[in-house]
Nucleic acid binder design. Structure first.
Lengths: 214, 214
DNA sequence: AGTATAGCTGAACAAATGTTCTATGTCAAG
DNA sequence: CTTGACATAGAACATTTGTTCAGCTATACT
């Protein structure tokens, strides 16, 4: 089991139970529920141990609030964002319409680490179909996290629509010759870049992250 | 705002408030807290609307349990696991020692979508240094999620130490010639596989996911 | 008009839940 | 042995909090 040198067995069990319970039900357990699981008959003893756990920094309590217990580990690291899954991306198809409404609507959502997205405004996820993005180090099945935007800065990895080729591509973008030429550089440096005129390119968004499940 | 065609303004606000509150405090709001925020004077009306939201599938209630409200979106997608960040991985170095104790101890942790890891037992994360894994579609700075194990099945992407080359590598593993030869296949099919004898290979773990932040 | 029905109010109620207090047992230090 | 810190039990208590119900106000339907 976990090694908490400064905690008693009971306190470890309490911690573990709160973690499980909260995960399962979405709200924290009451003092009596904790006691019943850990095997403590008296509510005061549970409260007593919770206070110790709070003092030692493992959790936070809110006085006189039912189920007012929160694990500290959750406070710090559990931050994540829910972003909408907008569908698929493949070389031949344009991006699914990413219209203005990104609020937590219907449809599927994915949870991603908050550090990955920062502000979740205009962020969405697409699943890659096919190996056409392999030169961007993106495999079949990968989840790409995009922020909807038309502009891009030098070096940004962008999702772009190549008008003439009628193809969607993910590449690093660089402006050349005073913005009259665009260089699309594969992430894999052994591959050759593409040069196109800005008018033949429609930037659909910026890639801010990739998640691959194997 | 969010578009919930089948919900009243109040119901949308209730939903939003529960989301905010739970995010901020770690436990759901009480009926009276909801009412006070949304501007409902009567607890029965809050309960009334909560029941509607439940019937329409936006949340779950547990009868007679204080703060027994849970958003359905959380149930399905918000689950995540905390896994320890064990350091770096580079072509030249062996893996940091992954000893037995994986419980949520000290050190840094990363939050990853639960679907990515499944059971978090023996799972840890390493950050990639350098471009040596590029043939596994893994870039400099990527976070690889590993499950500690010595064995591997055909097709698994494994983290393996090449004894003779003194190098760490991430590749798909295939057994050949009745397990007397190992084929290490790069994820990028345009690259050539490597063949080594099993004794020259130490499997350190299986790659179960990759997270890239751009 | 008559009458459902949805949405709401306010108050009373009961159950769930945190707090407090007294008492008991243990164990190590003085 | 005594003392005191610590951990626990049990019970009484006070709050918080969910539930129920009678009644009110619109709007829509017959």
């Amino acid at each position: 089991m976990a090694a908490y040198p400064d905690l008693s067995d009971r306190q470890e069990r309490i911690l573990a139970f709160i973690r499980e319970f909260t995960g399962e039900y979405g709200y924290p357990p009451s003092i009596r529920q904790i006691g019943s699981d850990v095997g403590i008959s008296s509510t005061s003893v549970v409260s007593y141990n919770l206070n110790i756990l709070q003092r030692k920094g493992y959790l936070t309590r809110t006085r006189e609030v039912s189920r007012g217990v929160r694990l500290v580990e959750e406070e710090s690291t559990s931050e994540q964002s829910l972003i909408p899954m907008m569908g698929y991306i493949a070389a031949g198809d344009p991006l699914p319409i990413a219209d203005g409404d990104f609020a937590q609507g219907e449809g599927e959502q994915v949870a991603v680490p908050k550090e990955l997205v920062g502000d979740a405004e205009g962020v969405y996820a697409l699943q890659v179909r096919g190996t056409s993005m392999i030169d961007a180090l993106i495999a079949d099945g990968d989840l790409v996290i995009l922020r909807h935007q038309q502009q891009a800065q030098n070096g940004d990895m962008v999702a772009a629509w190549l008008v003439e080729e009628k193809a969607m591509t993910l590449k690093h973008l660089y402006w050349e010759r005073n913005r009259t030429l665009v260089c699309l550089q594969p992430a894999n440096p052994t591959l050759e870049p593409i040069f196109v005129h800005p008018s033949k390119l429609e930037i659909q968004g910026r890639v801010i992250g990739v998640i691959r499940q194997l």
